[in-house]
Simulated scan of single mutants.
Amino acid sequence: MTRQALVTGVVGGIGAAIARRLAAEGHAVTLTDLPGPGLARRSEELGLPAMACDLGDAADVQRLVADLAATGGPPKIVVSAAGGVRGQTGKPVEEVSDNDWHRIFAANVDSAFHLARGVVPSMKASGWGRIVTISSGAGLRPSLTRIQAYCAAKHALVGLTKQLALELGPAGITVNSVAPGFVLSNPSTELQWDSYGPEGQAQLLERIHTRRLGRPEDIAAAAAFFVSDEAEWVTGQVLSVDGGVA
C-alpha cells in the first residue's frame, strides 16, 4: 500500500538511503533537510520532492506540516534521520559552550519532538502511523565521538522514542528507533574515521563482530522493516544495527 512518507536529514547518507528504500517499496516520499543546495541536489539525485525546514525551529516545523497536508497529504510514515554532531569535535567538558550543547540537542532531539508533535494528530485521526527515529550506539553507551552533548542527546532520543511508543500505541501508531554503529555516511564520520589512524581503525574493526563498517543501506533496511505492516506489533524498540559490537 502506498503511503505518504517524510524522511528528514536526507543530505546525509543514511537519510538518503532510507528515502531511496521507502520510495522503492512504493511509498510517496518527501524529503526534508535544512535549506540549501545540498537538499536540492539530493532531491534531483533521488527524483523525489523536497521541502526545506529547520526542524529545530518549532514554527518552521508547523509550517512544514501544514504544507505537507496541503499538497500530498499528511505523512503516515515519518523517519527522523536528522541530527549529527553539527561540525563539532570532542573536547573537555569544561570547554563546551552552552551554544555547542544546545545546537546538538536542537538537531537530534528537538527536531524529532517537534515533528512528532506536528504529525501525530493526523495519524491519530486515521488510526495508523509509523514513527522511526535514528538514534545511535551513542544512545546506548558512551560515544566514540567523545562529544558529551551528542551522547546525551542520543540517549534522550531513545527515551523520547520509548515514551511516545507508550503514549501512541493505543492510537495505532508505532514508534521505534534504529541505533546505527559506525557508518561512513557524511563528511563528519569520514573525518572521525580518518582521525583514528591505521592503528585505531584496526582496533575499532576488531571490536565489530562482522569486521566491517556499516553502510547506509544497512540502516535503511531496518527502518523499512519498522514502517512495514509486518511490524504492526513492534513498538518501543531500539534495534542496534552495528555489525555486533564487543
Results as ranks from 00 to 15, higher is better:
residue 245 V to A: 09
residue 64 L to Y: 07
residue 244 G to E: 14
residue 31 L to R: 01
residue 243 G to C: 06
residue 173 I to S: 08
residue 144 L to A: 13
residue 57 D to V: 10
residue 94 E to S: 08
residue 177 S to Y: 15
residue 186 N to V: 00
residue 238 V to W: 00
residue 29 V to K: 06
residue 35 P to K: 15
residue 150 Y to Q: 01
residue 61 V to T: 03
residue 67 D to W: 04
residue 56 G to Y: 04
residue 188 S to G: 08
residue 228 S to M: 09
residue 163 Q to L: 11
residue 220 A to H: 02
residue 94 E to N: 03
residue 129 G to L: 05
residue 119 V to W: 09
residue 172 G to V: 14
residue 239 L to Y: 00
residue 174 T to S: 12
residue 64 L to E: 10
residue 243 G to K: 01
residue 192 Q to V: 01
residue 151 C to Y: 05
residue 39 L to K: 02
residue 93 V to G: 01
residue 210 T to F: 15
residue 69 A to I: 07
residue 220 A to E: 07
residue 160 L to R: 07
residue 27 H to P: 06
residue 144 L to E: 14
residue 12 G to V: 14
residue 39 L to Y: 09
residue 19 A to T: 05
residue 24 A to E: 15
residue 133 T to R: 15
residue 57 D to S: 13
residue 51 M to H: 09
residue 118 G to E: 13
residue 129 G to K: 12
residue 125 A to T: 09
residue 127 G to D: 10
residue 77 I to W: 09
residue 244 G to R: 08
residue 202 A to H: 13
residue 164 L to C: 09
residue 164 L to G: 08
residue 170 P to Q: 14
residue 197 G to A: 06
residue 206 E to W: 14
residue 157 L to N: 13
residue 47 G to R: 11
residue 231 A to W: 00
residue 18 I to L: 01
residue 214 G to C: 14
residue 223 A to Y: 02
residue 80 S to K: 10
residue 148 Q to P: 02
residue 198 P to F: 05
residue 87 G to D: 15
residue 56 G to D: 12
residue 223 A to K: 01
residue 2 T to R: 05
residue 95 E to M: 08
residue 162 K to R: 12
residue 188 S to L: 02
residue 219 I to L: 03
residue 227 V to I: 10
residue 220 A to Q: 00
residue 138 A to G: 05
residue 199 E to N: 15
residue 11 V to K: 00
residue 223 A to Q: 11
residue 96 V to M: 02
residue 66 A to P: 06
residue 187 P to E: 00
residue 126 S to C: 05
residue 118 G to R: 12
residue 103 R to N: 05
residue 246 A to P: 10
residue 77 I to M: 09
residue 224 A to K: 04
residue 126 S to D: 08
residue 133 T to M: 10
residue 5 A to M: 07
residue 43 S to W: 08
residue 34 L to S: 07
residue 201 Q to G: 10
residue 66 A to V: 02
residue 38 G to I: 14
residue 214 G to A: 07
residue 241 V to R: 01
residue 92 P to C: 02
residue 111 S to H: 09
residue 191 L to W: 03
residue 144 L to F: 04
residue 218 D to Q: 10
residue 225 F to I: 12
residue 155 H to P: 03
residue 229 D to H: 02
residue 152 A to L: 01
residue 157 L to P: 06
residue 152 A to Q: 12
residue 129 G to F: 07
residue 91 K to V: 13
